[in-house]
């Protein structure tokens, strides 16, 4: 076990996997970092710090700077994957996935299906997402619900360094397209990471905290916030199951339903607007499959139905906070 940040866990996993498999290549905006500057390649380093040293080790054929065109990045990745490579495409901001959406949902997600299972498209698209860094409405969004809604894609959101390594390794060893979401505020989060080969199966949620009174289902940055809320509630003797989904497609329905059957109270925390959100989806799952277990109406803790504001104070008010999560748990308990 080594203690490291999510940023380093991702970087080290890329190093290790690219060494292991010569078919893996990385492409994205400024992943080499410094191309075109006086200092030359790698003078500056990619803006998220998740590609340092890759260019020096693997060269220009495997670490490729692209134009600022998500359509080109994802399209190239789709073609490379069809041709037998294992591309990792980095989208510096998940918000711009829209530009490449046809490549993703009509092509990458459907190749295997449209060709009768005779082809595979093992592309890993890394999408940097999330609010909390004062990056305004076009650089702060959490678009995982939209991609979760598309059959044919696996959608992954690590919240810990160990899961960043385990899930990225799993993505790079599998034969299916994976949407790998990295929250920009979580890059610096430190934690233990297993040494050696560490794979985390998709569709297997993590029980972060255990308690018998309410179930908090969440993912990404909100896991950390939910833990804070659960710790606060624990001081009052209220025990929460905190479930980190880890992957939203496939979704670990059993973990959610089993927990709600035990607690009867559900709070879903989702860093996105409420309409057609992951929170709404999980709420519908529980309403249809565990209705009789519910002792109180579920609570959804999401942002409002609005763009994410730039102003720091408004952004903070927009993002679900530990205080809002705590209040929601108290409401589901107050319902009797």
């Amino acid at each position: 076990m080594a203690i490291m940040t999510i940023r380093d866990a991702i970087l080290q996993t890329l190093h290790a996997e690219m060494e292991r498999d010569p078919d893996i290549l990385l492409l994205g905006e400024d992943v080499v970092g410094g191309n075109g500057t006086a200092g030359g390649p790698e003078a500056i380093g990619g803006i998220w710090g998740t590609s340092g040293g890759l260019y020096a080790k693997f060269g220009p054929d495997r670490v490729i700077d692209t134009p600022i065109s998500e359509s080109a990045i994802v399209g190239a990745a789709a073609g490379a994957a069809l041709a037998g490579k294992r591309p990792v495409a980095e989208l510096m901001f998940a918000d711009f996935v829209g530009v490449s959406l046809d490549q993703i949902w009509n092509q990458i997600a459907k190749f295997r299906y449209m060709f009768g299972g005779k082809t595979r498209c093992p592309a890993v698209i890394r999408l940097v997402y999330g609010a909390g860094m004062n990056t305004a409405a076009q650089h702060s969004q959490s678009v995982y619900a939209m991609l979760t809604a598309m059959p044919g894609l696996k959608v992954v959101l690590p919240a810990t360094p160990a899961d960043a390594k385990g899930l990225l390794t799993e993505a790079l060893r599998g034969d299916d397209p994976v949407m790998f979401f990295e929250h920009k505020t979580l890059y610096g989060v430190k934690g233990e990471v297993p040494d050696g080969d560490h794979r985390q199966r998709f569709g297997e949620a993590r029980m972060v905290r255990e308690g018998g009174d309410a179930t908090i289902v969440t993912c990404g940055r909100m896991v950390n916030f939910s833990e804070k809320a659960a710790d606060k509630l624990a001081a009052d003797g209220i025990g929460c199951d905190v479930i980190d989904l880890r992957t939203t497609s496939p979704l670990d329905e059993e973990a959610i339903l089993d927990s709600v059957e035990a607690t009867g109270r559900l709070v879903v925390v989702d860093e996105s607007p409420p309409r057609c959100s992951l929170a709404a989806d999980i709420c519908a799952l529980v309403a249809t499959k565990a209705f009789s277990s519910l002792k109180a109406p579920p609570e959804l803790v999401t942002g409002p139905h609005s763009p994410i504001p730039f102003a720091r104070e408004l952004e903070r008010a927009w993002v679900p906070s530990p205080q809002k999560i705590e209040a929601a748990v108290r409401r589901v308990l107050a319902a009797g």
């Binding site: 949620a205 905290r209 018998g212 479930i243």
Partner: peptide
Amino acid sequence: PAAPTLVGVLPPSPPSPVFATPMAR
């Protein structure tokens, strides 16, 4: 409504290599 009887915080379940839900563990 009566105040719910609280179960409280539970100790973490032991890890297991078996493919099982957290509650099953």
